Amino acid sequence: MTAPHVPDGWRKSSFSGGQTNCVEVARLGEGVAVRDTKNRGQGYFATDAAQWSAFVDAVKAGRFGRR
């Protein structure tokens, strides 16, 4: 039996400043964990590194419009 992965080194964007309405990311084995800073105790969702990279690239490219 292998031990479950635990998110390591939670961090949020430096653009967030002292705000608490952000998301945090952490390494999770070979992937990434993401959680809401307002509800840290509610858990996180996990994705693999390739999916996370594709998401970040899409954000940088402006594929998600603000409303």
Rank of each mutant, 00 (worst) to 15 (best):
T2K: 12
T2N: 10
A3R: 04
P4K: 13
P4A: 07
H5N: 12
H5M: 05
H5A: 09
H5S: 13
V6T: 09
V6S: 04
V6F: 02
P7D: 06
P7H: 05
P7V: 00
D8A: 07
W10K: 02
W10E: 03
W10N: 11
K12N: 05
S13E: 00
S13M: 14
S13Y: 05
S14C: 00
S16F: 09
S16A: 14
S16L: 05
G17E: 04
G17S: 02
T20C: 08
T20R: 15
N21G: 12
V23P: 00
V23I: 10
E24R: 07
E24Q: 14
V25N: 12
V25Q: 13
R27G: 12
G29K: 06
E30D: 15
G31Q: 04
V32C: 06
V32P: 04
V32L: 15
A33E: 02
A33F: 09
R35H: 02
R35T: 03
R35Q: 11
R35A: 04
D36I: 10
D36Q: 12
D36Y: 12
D36K: 10
T37I: 09
K38M: 11
N39W: 07
R40Y: 10
G41N: 02
G41E: 05
G41R: 07
Q42Y: 11
Q42W: 13
G43W: 06
Y44G: 10
F45L: 14
A46F: 10
T47N: 09
D48C: 14
A49R: 14
A49K: 08
A49G: 05
A50P: 06
A50C: 08
A50H: 11
A50M: 04
W52R: 10
W52L: 00
W52A: 03
S53G: 13
S53E: 13
A54G: 13
V56H: 01
V56T: 08
V56Y: 00
V56L: 09
D57H: 11
D57K: 15
A58W: 10
A58R: 06
A58N: 10
A58F: 01
A58Q: 13
V59Q: 01
K60N: 14
K60I: 00
A61M: 03
A61L: 00
G62D: 02
R63L: 15
R63G: 08
F64C: 01
G65W: 01
G65M: 10
R66V: 14
R66E: 14
R67L: 15
